[in-house]
C-alpha cells in the first residue's frame, strides 16, 4: 500500500482551507503541538505541515493563475529518512507514510536539507522536526465513520481538489485520476519518486480558443470597397 494525496490544480482556488484544517487537527495530534511564535504580533510565524503558494504561469494572453498546496510527498525514496542519524525519521512499511518519532529527534535540521519540497519544519520551541503525518491518527480511527477516515485537508477542501487514497492500487480513485488527467510529480528528476501527484489544469475547451474572424469597422469596409472599385 502506498497512501498519498492527489491534488487538482485545476480546481484548487488557493483558499488555504486545507492548511488551516491541517493545523487545527494536527496541533493536538501525534506530532503536535504545531507551535506558533508571535501569533498576534508583527512577525507571526509557526509550524505548518501544508503551505500554499500561488503562481502566474505563462504570459498574457495564455497566462493562468495556479495554486500549489504542498505538504510531505511521502516519497518512495525518502532521502530525509536516509540522512537522519538518529532513526527518528522513518517510512512505514505497511502504507508508506513518512513520520518523525518526536521522542528520538535531536533537531539537527539535516532531514529538512534533504527534502526538496520544504515539507519539514523545525519546531524551535519543542526542538524537534515536524511534518505532515497524512493524518495517520485519523485515517485508521475505527471510532470515526468510514467517510471521515481521511486526512483533515481532504475532508475540508471546499472545491474537492484534494483526493486521498492508495497510489499502489491501479483501480483506486487516485490512481485513475492520475491516469486520466496526466497527473505528475514535482521535481521527478531528483529521483525521490514522490507519492503525491498533482493534476494539471484542464485544457481550455476547443471552441473558446478558436480564432473568430475579426469584424472590420464600417469605415474600413467602405475604404476597401472603394479601393476595389477604383483599382478594377
Amino acid at each position: 500500500m502506498r497512501l498519498g494525496l492527489v491534488i487538482d490544480m485545476d480546481t484548487c482556488v488557493g483558499c488555504h482551507g486545507c492548511a488551516t484544517a491541517c493545523k487545527q487537527w494536527n496541533t493536538s495530534g501525534t506530532t503536535g503541538p504545531l507551535t506558533d511564535t508571535d501569533p498576534y504580533g508583527k512577525e507571526p510565524s509557526g509550524v505548518w505541515f501544508n503551505r500554499i503558494r500561488s503562481y502566474e504561469v505563462n504570459t498574457y494572453p495564455e497566462n493562468k493563475t495556479i495554486n500549489m498546496p504542498m505538504s510531505c510527498m511521502h516519497c518512495e525514496e525518502p532521502a530525509c529518512v536516509d540522512v537522519c542519524p538518529t532513526g527518528a525519521s522513518y517510512k512505514r512499511e505497511e502504507d508508506g507514510i513518512v513520520l518523525v518519532d518526536q521522542d528520538k529527534c535531536m533537531g539537527c535540521n539535516y532531514c529538512s536539507w534533504a527534502c526538496p519540497y520544504g515539507a519539514r519544519e523545525l519546531d524551535a520551541v519543542e526542538g524537534t522536526m515536524k511534518k505532515c503525518t497524512l493524518c495517520v491518527d485519523r485515517i485508521y480511527d475505527q471510532a470515526l465513520p468510514e467517510s471521515q477516515r481521511q486526512p483533515a485537508c481532504v475532508l475540508t477542501c471546499p472545491t474537492s481538489a484534494r483526493h486521498f487514497g492508495d497510489l499502489d492500487d491501479p483501480e483506486s480513485k487516485v490512481s485513475q485520476l492520475v491516469k486520466e488527467r496526466e497527473g505528475f510529480q514535482s521535481m521527478p528528476e531528483l529521483g525521490y519518486n514522490p507519492t503525491n501527484h498533482y493534476l494539471p489544469p484542464r485544457k481550455p475547451v476547443e471552441t473558446l480558443t478558436k480564432e473568430v474572424p475579426e469584424e472590420k469597422p464600417l469605415a474600413e469596409k467602405i475604404k476597401g470597397w472603394i479601393d476595389k472599385m477604383a483599382l478594377s
Binding site: 503551505r51 500561488s54 502566474e56 504561469v57 504570459t59 495556479i66 494539471p200
Partner: peptide
C-alpha cells in the same frame, strides 16, 4: 520541473502564502 505542467513557460510567484 518544480510546479510541473509546463516545460518552459514563464512562472511568476504571486503569493508566497504567509
Amino acid at each position: 520541473t518544480a510546479i510541473g505542467m509546463t516545460t518552459q513557460a514563464s512562472v511568476k510567484l504571486l503569493d508566497v502564502g504567509h
